[in-house]
Simulated scan of single mutants.
Amino acid sequence: MGLRAAIERGIRTLKVYGGSALVIYQLRGEWETRNPKLINYRKVFFGLLKKFDDIIFNYIPRDENQMADALATLASIIRVNKEKKMRPIQMSIFKAPASCCNIEEEEKDDNPWYQDILRYVRDRKYPEQATKNDKRTLRRLACNYVFDGNILYKKRKEQVLLRCVDAVEAKLILEEVHEGVCGTNTNGFTMARQIMRFGYYWSTMEGDCINYAKKCHKCQIYRDKIHVPPSPLHVITSPWPFSI
């Protein structure tokens, strides 16, 4: 359709840019066309080539073909009246995708629970107004943490590193593990083990998991009621002797 539109406008010299390497290299003759469906298109194409004095085919990767995709999208949604002239289209190019403008800013925890440990492991500095006992406790706790790539990790006994997360990230992890896409609405202890298996850690993890499971509405309704008060048993006689 593009070649025929160029022929209607009397264009004799043309540069063609395509995002499909298969089509471009086949039209250049560098690749052989074996698909029976494409052979007929190739014959029609070479028939149209005779009406051009010079035509060049260039391949553009899809990452560099964003402008062509935008123009193709506009062409599919706009109806042009042949009797009226088409006004020029003004387009603006932004540094970031438009979808990023709709994303709300994420909350940040300015004072995470591991702030003092991170400062000591990274800079070997103690918090202000720290006593000798506080410094000794901080040194003992810091032995179980590793700082790598601007991220603090908790080192377990089996030398497995767990990424330390703040309160905001911990809330998101609790929601995803308990009732997310793959959530199973497990109890607090099982949630804590799952989170550690996934590679995350925070100091109050087990208590937060238990409290989160207690406040879950679905768990309170559908979970087995193991703490129901006892009720008297009612003896039911067998009806077999009276069946005759």
Rank of each mutant, 00 (worst) to 15 (best):
E30V: 15
R223T: 07
W31M: 14
K125L: 02
F198P: 00
G188K: 01
V160S: 12
D208N: 06
R79K: 11
P127K: 08
H227P: 00
L49G: 07
N81M: 01
I221Y: 12
C216Y: 02
E83M: 04
E104T: 05
T131N: 13
I78W: 02
K171F: 04
D69V: 02
G18N: 06
V146I: 13
Q115S: 08
Y212H: 12
R12F: 09
K125R: 03
H234L: 11
L174K: 10
S231V: 12
K85G: 11
N187L: 06
L174Y: 00
L118Y: 04
P36H: 04
K157H: 13
G149L: 05
A130W: 00
G10W: 09
I117D: 01
N40G: 02
R223M: 09
R62D: 12
R87G: 02
G18H: 06
V181E: 04
A70W: 08
G183N: 02
K125G: 01
Y145S: 08
I77A: 08
Q129K: 15
T131Q: 13
P61Q: 10
R12D: 10
H227V: 11
A75L: 05
D53W: 10
D166V: 01
L14W: 12
P230T: 09
E128T: 06
E158P: 01
V146F: 12
D134W: 04
L162Y: 01
